[in-house]
């Protein structure tokens, strides 16, 4: 088995495309973080805060006058409340980025890792068919399920590596471009977070995003096995990855929506509080993911083992 994985790993890295992808990943992360630092100087939100504050003052003076109907008064008060919320937001977002906030937000770049893993997973089986090498691969004293398993493990390893590269280059550029937090707490999605908890929290978020990337990659892997077409496997998976959330939202009024994979695949929502459907819990989401995962893998393995190779 180890030999088979070595083989797959060798084939993966013998392709120029893989190197290009990984280097591109590291470069884009470091580049984007640097760019964000540069644009921070260009865009200053403090003016927005000031204009908001003057508007609030104006509403205040309007409220002070006596010739207002009850309706007008309520409306103005509501407006004032909204304004005040926006002021808080503008001050918050105008906080200088610190090293810790960059690190903790790294999981947001994991969509890139997902894309790259989809490309690898969608092609790893189907290219063997399209290049005809599958004949050479399967007429060996190795059971087919071992061949397929070695390929799946290779996809997992690639995804892990890409995740590690993402985290490492994000942390690296955070240290290059930003200075450490001066206060002992920071704001993270309506919650105050202890700065010392940044490492564990950011790693946990990375892990949740890794799970998300892997489940999407498993779809690509399965489609690659079923259709023997790289383009189809990659295309459909990317489409589902980007529209999955929307599909769930469209179907939200139906009760079966909570059994759709994409209502659950992104587990980071339980940390940030932006769940697509209300009243979902982590254990339920994990359950749904596991069920889908097993279905995808069983389908892949059964098809691969039963198929007559005519390529």
């Amino acid at each position: 088995m180890l030999n088979l994985i070595k083989n797959e790993w060798m084939k993966l890295w013998s392709k120029k495309g893989t190197w290009v992808m990984v280097i591109f990943l590291a470069a884009i992360i470091i580049g984007l973080t640097g760019l964000a630092k540069l644009s921070e100087r260009l865009f200053d939100d403090s003016e927005w805060t000031e204009s908001l504050e003057t508007e609030i003052d104006e509403i205040e003076t309007q409220l002070a006058s006596d010739d207002l109907t009850e309706r007008e008064r309520v409306e103005l008060e509501m407006q004032q409340e909204d304004m005040q919320e926006m002021v808080v937001f503008s001050i918050e977002s105008n906080q200088p980025q610190v090293r810790e906030s960059v690190i903790i937000e790294t999981y947001g770049i994991m969509s890139l890792v997902t894309l790259l893993t989809i490309i690898v997973a969608g092609g790893i089986v189907s290219t063997e068919f399209s290049q005809g090498t599958i004949k050479m691969l399967l007429s060996r004293p190795v059971s087919r399920w071992k061949v397929l398993l070695s390929k799946y493990i290779t996809v997992i390893l690639f995804c892990l590596l890409a995740t590690a590269i993402t985290y490492a280059s994000s942390v690296m550029s955070a240290y290059i471009f930003y200075s450490g937090a001066t206060e002992s707490t920071m704001l993270f999605y309506d919650e105050m977070l202890n700065v010392s908890a940044v490492w564990s929290k950011s790693l946990y978020l990375m892990f949740l995003s890794f799970v998300n990337a892997m489940i999407i990659a498993t779809i690509a892997f399965m489609l690659g096995v079923l259709f023997k077409s790289t383009a189809m496997a990659i295309g459909i998976s990317i489409f589902l990855y980007f529209t999955g959330g929307m599909i769930v939202m469209f179907l939200a009024k139906y009760s079966f929506a909570k059994f759709i994979l994409f209502a659950h695949s992104n587990l980071t929502v339980y940390e940030t509080g932006y769940s697509i459907l209300p009243d979902m819990t982590m254990p339920f989401s994990v359950m749904v993911i596991i069920v889908y995962w097993i279905i995808f893998l069983v389908l892949s393995f059964l098809t691969f083992m039963k198929r007559d190779v005519t390529a």
């Binding site: 060798m10 084939k11 013998s14 120029k16 290049q131 005809g132 090498t133 004949k135 050479m136 007429s139």
Partner: peptide, 13 residues
């Protein structure tokens, strides 16, 4: 030992 039709090898290696 097998050669089925044209021996398809991994061209990029």
């Amino acid at each position: 030992g097998v050669i089925v039709e044209n021996p398809e090898m991994y061209k990029y290696m």
